[in-house]
Design a protein around this nucleic acid. Structure first.
Lengths: 149, 149
DNA sequence: GGTTAGATTTTGAATCATTCTAAACAGGGA
DNA sequence: TCCCTGTTTAGAATGATTCAAAATCTAACC
């Protein structure tokens, strides 16, 4: 059941693309819609399959292209775990990831500003960090206690 | 210039392997020696090339095997950045990684216990974490201010 | 309406790190 | 010596991702 984009999301898409001189296309809209529909950090393949349901002619390469474009204009983040397939996450707020060893599912963990600050403070002088990535590996009980948002 | 293992390192190798019922072999010793010689987080290929200098017949598959074995018995850690080749790190103390955007080099950053604790504390109840991975991305000035340990 | 330029999409081939497979090898007991 | 088991080896296979080139689309201009 893939809903259409809300007015707000569509504008967000259109503006973010415009900022880097790019346009909204039906494919990009479809891929973006899929990402927002289920925030379960899908792989490219999962996005591809879901988007196909609504746009059967869509090609895998296009999904790669769209996702790369979105990452480029800051609409989504990549999530990697070791060398497994890259996953995609439309949550823009600063957050860490928790990967469940058993299920492989990735959960978002809110990241308070003071924790970020204390992390940055461990860098010796001369190290300028633009981005921090934090991921936990372990077991999450009661899977849905903290929905995968 | 690849030195031999120190008495201490050799014992460490031998004991760690023994714990999981495995033996020291010339290949494992060579690979381990390479890892300790330059702690610059080499890729498998780099390890392979360095180890070849001292053991010309060594095969790439064996390097993969050795490194996997070492990871399995806790002698080394894998370091991943996005989907680039996996790198290997013989630093066992808890530490974060800082990846220099320009050079691609990875630096170890000491990780104080209290920072680890504050990180663990952001996990909602029900999330049990066994491992945390932290990596910074940015620019490190004066490359060797904090040697790659 | 037709034309052109530029971006976007598509298909299929290519790449590259890693894993797998099956055969050769080594070394320590029986 | 002969097994047994673990290890190494070479090469094939895998799988995610990227690339290349042709096809398509869109918007702007005439």
């Amino acid at each position: 059941m893939i809903q259409n984009l809300t007015e707000h999301d569509r504008e967000n898409l259109q503006e973010s693309l415009a900022k880097s001189g790019q346009k909204v296309t039906p494919q990009r809209e479809a891929v973006f819609t899929v990402l927002l529909a289920d925030r379960d950090h899908p792989t490219v393949d999962e996005v591809f399959n879901r988007a196909r349901e609504v746009m059967p002619g869509l090609s895998l390469a296009t999904v790669y292209n769209c996702l790369e474009t979105f990452v480029g204009c800051g609409l989504v983040r990549q999530v990697n775990h070791e060398r497994e397939s890259t996953r995609y996450c439309p949550n823009l707020a600063p957050h860490a990831h928790f990967r469940d060893k058993e299920t492989g599912r990735v959960h978002d963990i809110e990241l308070p500003a003071d924790v970020i600050k204390s992390l940055r403070s461990i860098l010796p002088p001369g190290f300028d960090s633009e981005a921090i990535e934090i991921s936990f590996l372990g077991r999450a009980q009661g899977g849905d206690a903290h929905p995968t948002l």
